[in-house]
């Protein structure tokens, strides 16, 4: 496996180098949708932190918090990716005349 690693790395680098240039509209829309998703996620995170602070102030630190936060991170990443995909799809018009 260790002998394979450099070859895998080279393949990965080759794949990066071979990425075709992006359509300008696709590039702009992807950036816009990522920024929008980041804004929504940041606002949501702020609201959750405020609620968690309130809870901890009332009942003390919750047990199992680190496990839940790890699960939340995966879920949030999935949620962000879904938001970006929905945003891109929502800003595309159906092709005409097909």
């Amino acid at each position: 496996m260790t002998r394979l690693a450099p070859a895998v790395l080279l393949l990965a680098l080759a794949a990066c180098a071979a990425r075709p240039p992006a359509d300008p509209a696709e590039a702009a829309l992807l950036a816009a949708c990522r920024a929008e998703a980041d804004r929504v996620m940041a606002a949501r995170e702020r609201a959750q932190l405020m609620r968690a602070d309130e809870r901890e102030a009332q009942v003390g630190a919750l047990e199992g918090g680190s496990v839940r936060r790890g699960t939340d991170a995966l879920g949030e990443r999935f949620e962000r990716d879904r938001m970006v995909a929905d945003c891109i799809a929502g800003n595309r018009r159906a092709p005409r005349g097909n």
């Binding site: 509209a25 696709e26 590039a27 702009a28 829309l29 992807l30 950036a31 816009a32 920024a35 929008e36 800003n91 595309r92 018009r93 159906a94 092709p95 005409r96």
Partner: peptide
Amino acid sequence: LGRASWTRGLFVLD
């Protein structure tokens, strides 16, 4: 287009 969300309604892709 990538950073100003208000432009979103001013262009469409297909």
